[in-house]
Amino acid sequence: MNLESPSRLQKILSKGEFAVTAECGPPRGANPDVVLKKAELLKGCADAVNITDNQTAIVRMSSISASVHVMKAGLEPVMQMVVRDRNRIALQSDILGAWSLGIKNILCLSGDHQTFGSQPEALNVFDIDSMNLLRLVKDMRDEGRDMSGFELDGPPRMFIGAAANPFADPFEYRVVRLAKKIDAGADFIQTQCIYNMDRFKKWMKLINEEGLTEKVYILAGVMPLKSAGMARYMKNKVAGMDIPDDIIKRMEGVPKEKAAQEGISLCIEQIAELRQIKGIHGIHLMAIEWEDKVKGIVEKAGLYPRPEID
């Protein structure tokens, strides 16, 4: 891991503090107020916030510009970058630009396929994959060179993140894939939302045995459920999501008006359980369009206030 990188998130993690990241989806429009409002709600609750990159393949304000908006509001962004929409030339150029604007964290992703979005007739790019993206950001940072080998005037010293989904198949290969991502350049990992705790623990056991948690920071993904309907929808419709029946039953077992509170309670219990697992260095709290609940969850989870870092 490159300790020179001056990201706040990296400082928190390297100090051994239990990190909290949250998520902030840019708006479907050019109005920055939406981002600033979300940032205001998340301020002080998270060490950094992920700024999604046209998530679910729906056109939104770019992750670079929304990252700049949240920085103005006093939050540190984790700029997400997908390889779906940009070729290697555009990706490298945007990474240089992002660093020049003060963006210090990047999360390298493949991206949701465009057929899930609002413009399924679009041509995708996928010039390189997320593994290649990790390597190119690392090479830019550590070697100071772009993919052509050209020496950069001012290398972008990004703190590099990757995603991992222990709930996708084939299960055993997920450990190999994580190892590859670490080798390629990942400093930290944010996982898919965890509901199937048994499977997650099994994956953590395997990656602990391989020594991978010594090489990378793992931020466990959690997402509070708003209703039983949301749980069922995610189980059946969202790719790569694994929600066991007992969680759905629990959400169905409370009256509708109390479902949101139940979802939040469940989330707080999950965070407590995750903190007990060896090799977990923080949580990534995805309260999508529910940013006003983040503070309460972080408080009740005993993770508030966030540590001061100079």
Binding site: D129, A168, K180
Partner: peptide, 20 residues
């Protein structure tokens, strides 16, 4: 592979099927 991935399956591979 719908995403032309060269380094392993994406997070959408479930039960042997493509998310797309």
């Amino acid at each position: 592979c719908a995403k032309k991935l060269l380094n392993g399956p994406c997070g959408g591979s479930q039960n042997g099927k493509c998310e797309v």
